[in-house]
């Protein structure tokens, strides 16, 4: 949307611009014309207001309210919040070693899910972008895991990654390797959880990237071929640069999802107190918020403070993402 469009009077369709800036209908119009004017002027608002009314309370109010809460004390089981405590709750969270661990766990799981996902999705998409027999069937097939709910995926993979009775270790042992301590070793636990995420989302991202591939003008390839570029060269010099915005989209949505991961590690947990492993090996930030909100002193305000810290982290990561992409893009243009 261009700036001019926004500045134009409300209710006007793009193609027309009889542009009267004043809220009052031009004089000399009939009542019916006036009505029509009001209709065109205010309908656009009427259409978005229902959405925003709901959206503000659903999406915005809780964040604002938790921001407010984070500056108060609220003893466990109290019905209302107590006195203001400044930044004490933020201090508590930021100095909590468990929070630090949760932060790195979340980043680790995110990297282990985002990177393989993007790579595999790109490769599979490239294969789907060929004149396959039964194209629709293949596309549907890669999307199949999408119908498996995270809770279901977590339960299925929980059985595969069980330490002593799981399939993964049984296979490893069968080929003469020793089993992996999926619930104990930090990296192994991240891998197991990332596998659940990858399972559900790789096919979905494949389709997104496939769509981007198909939007690349075929002449670009023809031109490259005439220049003598091999298929591999074509992939790196034509395909990848063309789908970069889509990649960024995939990565950003993966970031948002990755920072919120909860169901998979929670159901994977063997610790009775849901600490994400006895040594907090795979406690994620969202799990931290959840656990904080029902234990210790001041559960609500501390959970709220942690929430806001996480929001700031996400914004930070998004900006970093943006900066890196711009840098890469600039280098690419040079």
């Amino acid at each position: 949307m261009s700036v001019t469009r926004t500045d134009a009077p409300a209710g006007e369709v793009l193609a027309t611009s009889p542009a009267t800036g004043s809220p009052v209908p031009p004089p000399g119009l009939t009542w019916r014309q006036k009505l029509s004017h009001w209709d065109f002027r205010f309908s656009p608002y009427l259409y978005v207001v229902p959405f925003f009314a709901l959206f503000l309370v659903i999406g915005v109010y809780p964040m604002v309210y938790s921001g407010y809460l984070s500056f108060f004390s609220w003893p466990r089981y109290g019905l209302t919040h107590g006195e203001g405590v400044g930044f004490a709750n933020y201090g508590h969270v930021l100095t909590d070693p468990v929070f630090h661990k949760a932060f790195w766990n979340t980043i680790g799981i995110f990297v282990l899910s985002a990177v393989p996902q993007v790579v595999v999705a790109t490769v599979v998409a490239a294969m789907l972008d060929t004149p396959l027999r039964g194209r629709t069937w293949w596309r549907m097939s890669v999307l199949l895991p999408f119908v498996v709910a995270p809770a279901a995926a977590a339960l299925i993979f929980g059985s595969i990654f069980a330490d002593k009775t799981g399939l993964a270790n049984e296979v490893l042992r069968a080929v003469g390797l020793s089993g992996v301590a999926w619930h104990t070793d930090r990296f192994a636990s991240w891998t197991a959880i990332a596998t659940m995420v990858n399972y559900r989302w790789t096919g979905y991202n494949t389709l997104i990237i496939l769509a981007a591939l198909q939007a690349i003008p075929r002449q670009l390839y023809e031109a490259a071929a005439i220049d003598g570029a091999s298929r591999v060269q074509q992939f790196f010099h034509v395909t990848l640069p063309s789908i970069r915005p889509t990649m960024l989209f995939v990565i950003i949505t993966a970031t948002i999802g990755g920072m919120q991961i909860f169901t998979e590690p929670r159901l994977f947990d063997t610790n009775l107190q849901f600490q994400g492993g006895a040594d907090y090996q795979y406690q994620t930030l969202t799990m931290y918020v959840f656990n904080t909100s029902n234990s210790g002193t001041d559960p609500y305000p501390r959970a709220a403070a942690a929430t806001w810290i996480i929001v700031l982290i996400i914004i930070g990561i998004a900006l970093l993402n943006y900066a890196i992409t711009r840098q890469v893009q600039r280098r690419g243009e040079r």
Partner: peptide, 11 residues
Amino acid sequence: RHSTTRRKAAV
């Protein structure tokens, strides 16, 4: 993906 949002609610 995640944007389908869980605007958990304060409706």
